[in-house]
């Protein structure tokens, strides 16, 4: 059946079952999280729907469970499955948002540094290198800490998600800038760019219309890998108590909250969010790997 497929893209994709499964996992998780308010069996953070009497119920296949709560409940009687879907929503939002921000900054800096070279390149890349010397999590911690003290507590609580996006996004742009700069420098010396100059096209047209599309391939791969990294960074920050508030927990915050009960036998509160995080990160990584191989004709 595979032999009838003309398109290289679908052929390469379908001949890698691992990638297909990963891609499906991403699609299912993204859809489930995006439509959490409609899909989730409960609204876990609405106090009026929670009953403390339902607390610490095990998953449906264990003794003493309640069929209303498929993956059990936590100590406040919240449905674990629903909390995961709402939490995954925040994790994905932070992951995608942070990477979008990193990509945008990285593209601008990389294109400018690579195209103009000289002093522009030196200044921009020195700044990038200084930032690269700090671990991303440290930068995120720093930004988070500064904003926490600078903003009033209520503003900080409501702005948790944008703040996480900002912190993680600003920590991750250097890799994008480097990869874009390197590709831009290669493209800049190609004859088609010289031809653009010979036609007289202004620099911004050359950069945006001609060079940008030719450097997007590696950026796409890096972006996918970085989504996984950003999700993990967010989870780490939340686990450390610096991320989303407990009233609106992301996957990382759920794991942090649940970890306290791990040894009291209430394992489902931490294991299921943990598995979901794992699945998300592995799936993004595998799809990114496949994309890198697909875009590199030498590996085909």
């Amino acid at each position: 059946m595979l032999n009838r497929i003309k398109s290289d893209f679908w052929y390469e994709l379908l001949s890698s079952p691992v990638t297909v499964i990963s891609a499906l996992t991403i699609i299912v998780l993204v859809l489930a999280c995006a439509f959490a308010p409609w899909i989730a069996p409960h609204t876990p953070f609405d106090p009026s729907t929670i009953s403390i009497l339902d607390n610490n119920l095990p998953p449906a296949w264990e003794d003493g469970s309640d069929p209303r709560f498929v993956l059990g409940t936590d100590m406040q009687g919240r449905d674990v499955l629903s909390a995961m879907l709402y939490g995954g929503r925040i994790s994905l939002l932070v992951g995608l948002g942070a990477v979008a921000l990193s990509t945008l900054i990285g593209l601008v800096v990389g294109l400018l540094a690579g195209f103009f070279g000289g002093i522009t390149d030196t200044v921009l890349m020195r700044v990038a290198e200084v930032q690269f010397a700090f671990p991303p999590i440290l930068i995120a911690l720093l930004l988070n800490g500064i904003l926490k003290t600078a903003l009033p507590a209520d503003v900080f609580a409501t702005a948790a998600v944008p703040i996480m996006i900002l912190a993680i996004g600003l920590a991750g742009w250097v890799q994008f800038a480097r990869i874009v700069r390197a590709s831009t420098m290669v493209q800049r010396d190609q004859d088609y760019v010289t031809a653009c100059h010979a036609i007289g096209l202004p620099n911004h047209t050359v950069i945006l219309r001609h060079i940008l599309p030719n450097v997007l391939g590696p950026v796409l791969v890096l972006a996918m890998l970085q989504i996984a990294v950003a999700i993990v960074t967010e989870a780490t920050l939340s686990f450390l108590g610096l991320g989303t508030p407990l009233t609106e927990p992301s996957l990382g915050a759920l794991i942090q909250a649940g970890s306290q009960f791990l040894f009291s036998g209430i394992w489902w509160v931490v294991i299921f969010p943990g598995l979901m995080l794992l699945a998300m990160v592995i799936a993004f990584n595998l799809v990114a790997d496949w994309f890198r191989d697909y875009l590199n004709p030498r590996l085909r």
Binding site: D191, Y192, T194, A195, A198, G200, R209, P213, N214
Partner: peptide, 24 residues
């Protein structure tokens, strides 16, 4: 002025692969 000059003078390069933008 530069635009008018550019219109008069054009180039054909050696490598027909790198001299066309493959994305367009």
């Amino acid at each position: 002025q530069r635009k008018r000059f550019r219109r008069d003078v054009q180039v054909v390069f050696q490598d027909p692969y790198s001299s066309l933008n493959s994305r367009l």
